[in-house]
Write a protein that binds this DNA or RNA. Sequence first.
DNA 1: ATTTATATGATGAACTTTTGATGATTTGTT
DNA 2: AACAAATCATCAAAAGTTCATCATATAAAT
Lengths: 254, 254
Amino acid sequence: MIKEKRINKIEEYIKEHKSASLDELMDVFKVSKNTIRRDVQELVERGDFKKVYGGVAINDEKRANLESFHERQVRNQTEKEKIGKAAADFVQDEDIIFIDSGTTTIEMIKFIKNKQVTVITNNLDFIVRALPYENLNVITAGGILERKTNSFGSLKYMDILNAYNINKAFMASTGVSLTNGVTNASPLESELKASIVNRSSEVFLLVDHDKFDKYGLMTYCGLDKIDYLVTDIMPNEVYQDFAKKNTIQLVIAE
Amino acid sequence: MIKEKRINKIEEYIKEHKSASLDELMDVFKVSKNTIRRDVQELVERGDFKKVYGGVAINDEKRANLESFHERQVRNQTEKEKIGKAAADFVQDEDIIFIDSGTTTIEMIKFIKNKQVTVITNNLDFIVRALPYENLNVITAGGILERKTNSFGSLKYMDILNAYNINKAFMASTGVSLTNGVTNASPLESELKASIVNRSSEVFLLVDHDKFDKYGLMTYCGLDKIDYLVTDIMPNEVYQDFAKKNTIQLVIAE
DNA sequence: ATTTATATGATGAACTTTTGATGATTTGTT
DNA sequence: AACAAATCATCAAAAGTTCATCATATAAAT
């Protein structure tokens, strides 16, 4: 087994057991104590763990932080990345775009990070991941931090949205259906989303295939308000017909 | 299988397993180690992966991102932490406080993380570090992301500030002097800061000793507007006199 | 069908990283 | 203070890498 893999396994092991002695790790991974020591040292330097005499333990200060960023989006990762890429292809230099909260929309960062765009977003993960790329002009309307979605929920209609003419809005949703339209789970965010959809010249909806025929607590716009529906699998005929009738362009990623 | 397809499969494989040894890939994809090596090299050049000894692993760019948060403030760390603690001692449950941007104010997080407070802040580092503590109700006015300070610079007076009656404002400064008052370097933030100082019932200024008798680009309030001056070394008599005359309470940390 | 370009596999020499062993030093416990 | 365990520093063997070269196979273009 290569070192990298072993270190990852050790990381998992410690996370599972909350702590571990060096002898224990030595026994489980069948390498010398010396090697374990070096591996542990590396893990400690990465910041998730702290060294204790004779062993290693999780550093819970940073733990919660890291997990919220690292381990969150896993379900359908590759699909989401594909959808994000397909959507990002529509972004051009000088655009003023809105990026909704959600795990699909955040994947767009990888594909627009070198473009010259103004991004308006309430998505905290996106903001943090945009930090290294100075060409991205990032603006947020602010509001109350919602930890469920790592986003800011607006209290009321925000002035900042009036100041910018949003070109393209990239929206997410917890469920899409013909009868209930585009829905999400957070009342605080609905008003903002609805307002964005109305103001943006072009509206993109990014949803993976298993969001169809489902719906969440609040409807923030009808499906007919969408201009581009970006997803990973061609939806059934009912949606295809609806798209044709309402001039919604279906974009199937990859 | 065509090269492109194989490379994509390898990409998926590595993503799924977090890392892989060359031998492992050789075995799975039934090509020579030489080819695997070339494929891996290409994947590494694309940026998502890094080469490790004996194999390849995912390039955890998120980790680098987070490091920029943790490793940034180093100058006068201990002093700043002390000042942060001294200031945090004034924070009580149910307070509505404002936390300014800056490396001193952010230290307060460690000492208020278990209190029941509403925090209004434009300090992005603070927001991120407050994520794990659900008892902290975090609100931001938003605005344009300024990478120099990792904070949001407001465009204009924000409604959100009217909605909350800020109890205690914990302000930072790049320089303090009797003649120039309390100054900072960012024009975008000055207006917000001035408005906060006016609205908050109690104003705390957190500065370490080497900020005295210096001044920055913009003055956002006179020194007399401050109610508590929290620092690490007792300032000279001129400041002591001024404090006495203007009922400013000097707080010397530790 | 022939040429051309690209992709692959095999080999070997020089080089680098990783590992476990050893012994000296530090740290925690009684 | 005395003891045992843990850590650190150093070193040589083992495993892995890089690079160049060459032969072969496959795909694309004419």
